[in-house]
């Protein structure tokens, strides 16, 4: 956009400088607001319980201790078990990786068909899939629980993978469809004349073009699945819970003393994978967010 800030007439330079200064001050204040909870979590997780009780929320730790992290990782109690977050962290990894891979692959094929191989009814199918993105999942919770039970997948990791793939397809299809729809239809025609078939065209021409949207989709799906709580809490049992459920159990476990430092360390551990993804590939994360909302 045209530079609105520099548009003000160059009357008093002093006045202008004051305004700029205020602007930066306000922006800085908000940055503090967003950062403070993370800061508090981090410092709390490095303090001993005595220091927490004695000191203030925002004070830096006097004696840095990593034992809350060790506890959170390997011995904090999630109810009756006291194995820390570790097994659940790996559960989440085991759920997220196949679910992300499968839903992304399906979305890519679906998007390719809907955008480039239009047939009668394709738009209706797309609309139906799109509506599926917006339902509150509560409305499928009960029948899904029964179905997983019937399939023998109740409380299992494959069951959770299945659920995440099914309810991820809508968004992944949307992402790929919106990306492929910008590719001129002539490309498929040219490849058809060249003798290439449906899969050949996808593999040789569309897939090599798709890296940006694959990154967007994988990040989106990973964030969604890693952060999921509703499916995790509804369809898992003691040994198969994902990390979010375990974190909630640790925080709300009523046995023994309330260990705030362990809670915070556990929260950071649970948040770390998505935070790292965000810091490394924030651009793609934001693109997914806006694509999922603006273009939805």
């Amino acid at each position: 956009m045209t530079d609105l800030a520099s548009s003000s007439p160059p009357r008093a330079g002093w006045n202008r400088r004051l305004l700029r200064w205020m602007l930066y001050a306000i922006l800085g204040l908000f940055a503090l607001y967003y950062l403070l909870p993370l800061f508090v979590m981090l410092t709390t997780s490095l303090k001993s319980l005595e220091e927490i009780r004695a000191g203030s929320l925002i004070a830096l730790p006097r004696d840095v201790t990593f034992s809350p992290w060790a506890t959170a990782w390997s011995s904090a109690c999630t109810g009756i078990q006291c194995e820390g977050l570790r097994p659940y962290f790996w559960n989440s990894v085991l759920i997220a990786i196949p679910a992300v891979a499968l839903s992304t692959m399906l979305g890519a094929m679906n998007g390719y068909v809907i955008a480039q191989w239009r047939f009668r009814g394709a738009n209706l199918i797309f609309s139906l899939m799109l509506f599926g993105c917006f339902i509150p999942f509560q409305v499928v919770l009960l029948p899904m629980a029964r179905l997983l039970g019937m399939m023998g997948l109740a409380g299992s990791i494959p069951g959770l993978i299945f659920v995440h793939v099914i309810y991820g397809i809508g968004f992944t299809t949307l992402f790929f469809r919106n990306y492929y729809v910008t590719i001129p239809a002539d490309l498929v025609k040219a490849a058809k004349v060249d003798g290439a078939g449906f899969f050949r065209i996808f593999w040789s021409i569309f897939l090599p073009l798709s890296l940006p949207i694959i990154v967007v989709t994988v990040i989106w799906q990973f964030t969604q699945i890693w952060n999921d709580f509703l499916f995790g809490v509804s369809f898992s049992e003691a040994g198969t819970q994902p990390v979010t459920v375990a974190l909630n159990n640790i925080v709300n476990s009523t046995t023994g003393v309330k260990e705030y430092n362990v809670d915070m360390a556990a929260a950071i551990i649970a948040a770390l994978p998505t935070l790292i993804v965000y810091v490394v590939a924030g651009k793609y994360f934001v693109r997914g967010l806006t694509a999922g909302s603006v273009k939805g």
């Binding site: 002539d186 025609k189 040219a190 490849a191 058809k192 004349v193 003798g195 290439a196 078939g197």
Partner: peptide, 27 residues
């Protein structure tokens, strides 16, 4: 693919990720 034809498109429809040589030899 079985009509023994070749076609040149308005947008050229060159395969964007392939080199010129690969574009020509893809068929």
């Amino acid at each position: 693919k079985d009509r023994d034809i070749a076609m040149v498109f308005q947008s050229y429809a060159l395969y964007p990720t392939m080199s010129v040589a690969k574009n020509i030899t893809f068929g």
